[in-house]
Design a protein around this nucleic acid. Sequence first.
RNA 1: CGGGGCGUGGCGCAGUCCGGUAGCGCACCUGCUUUGGGAGCAGGGGGGCGCUGGUUCGAAUCCAGCCGCCCCGACCA
Length: 440
Amino acid sequence: MRLSRYFLPTLRETPAEARIVSHRLMLRSGMIRRASAGIYSWLPLGFRVLKKIETVIHEEMTAAGAQAVLMPTLQLADLWRESGRYDVYGPEMLRIADRHDRDMLYGPTNEEQITQIVRDDIRSFRDLPRNLYHIQWKFRDEIRPRFGVMRGREFLMKDGYSFDLDFEGAKRSYNIMFVAYLRTYARMGLKAIPMRAESGPIGGDLSHEFIVLADTGESAIHADKRLFAMDPRADGVDLEGDLEPVVKRWTSLYAATDDKHDPATCPLPAGDLVEARGIEVGHIFYFGTKYSEPLGCAVTMPDGERRVLHGGSYGIGVSRLAAAIIEASHDDAGVVWPDAVAPFDVGLVNLKSGDADCDAAADDLYGKLRGAGVEVLLDDREERAGVKFADMDLIGLPWQLAVGPRGARAGTVELKRRAGGEKHELAADAALQRILDKSA
RNA sequence: CGGGGCGUGGCGCAGUCCGGUAGCGCACCUGCUUUGGGAGCAGGGGGGCGCUGGUUCGAAUCCAGCCGCCCCGACCA
């Protein structure tokens, strides 16, 4: 992509409304614009990030045996009356009437919708278990939306739902998601710690929040320092095998959010305790027959018994993750995107657009990178070098490649890694090779 | 919803107390000079001050109502 033709409205100054760093940087780097309180438009750069996050999630969900579907944003109120939640949900639910004056709602979540689908088309024990998910916009009319997309009213969520014959099966589905979630966040360059959460009316301990560490996070957390040394990708986990030991390893170590932490009863000595801040980016829980029962979601067992299904649901805040990743990865100059979710792999800066040597060298690199399947943003604008560098640092692409008049004639370029900032003057082909090696 | 604050070109702000017909920086356009970390000079374009109604010879400035937005609290991916 050539920046001269790309819609990337960066801001030199910070809009007054933005208080936290992710919100400021998302506005300044031209990722989002506010449409109204808690509702945002995603501009090309931001939309790319959203899609990258979705891709990671899709890959990990597929690997975990879940299947992607897409359910509607608008749902019939009658469906929610079946589960009883239409009256329980309160003003956070956006209620709408269509032209026939039929009560509808903009879905804040989809348990009812997915349960209806499974109820209508899954009838035999042979068809279980199933794990279906979608990535769809949700609306919750929050009392106080804030911090940009961190707590928006409209937000993109991955919500998945498992259906099993019994508790044992549901527990297994839960464990698979538990592990898949750890892997998903790790791939995005995030350290996510699972923490025991309120499990609601069903009871038991099958509910965990996933908290990503960020200095600017909303909640304080207290956790065993050993949790931070664990790498979910290092296990080489077999998702088909028994995951109970893996889940146990994570859940047996102390981790609590501020409201559940009491220094007086904390089992860990201060030296083993990490006090940090975090952002909730996921929540999983087992809810048994809470929806299957009232909605009549059941299958026939081998002996003819009608068995009500056990469900679980698994959420990831996709749009919130875009902000959370920035909170966890930025510096004074701007965003520092982890490779997996960066909107482009490489920012190629032509330091002197219009100079024949520079143009030729930049175009050559641009073509070669694209030919190798690397996503490149070429800054070919008629701007001064300083402006281009500042914008590149702001939008935070993992690699920067600068082509200037001196280098263009000598056949060299400057390669900079955004994270860390190391710069190397290299032959163009060597720089190209280094990017290909590292991004492979 | 309770408490606090703010709405003036795309962004950041001044002007409002003490009414006289809108200003600064950045951005944008043109020209010249400049050119490896947010250039300099010169010349331009763009807003009638959130909306509605009132007071007044005259309202961004005063009054009333409404709308929108931000911050603190309870809730949430």
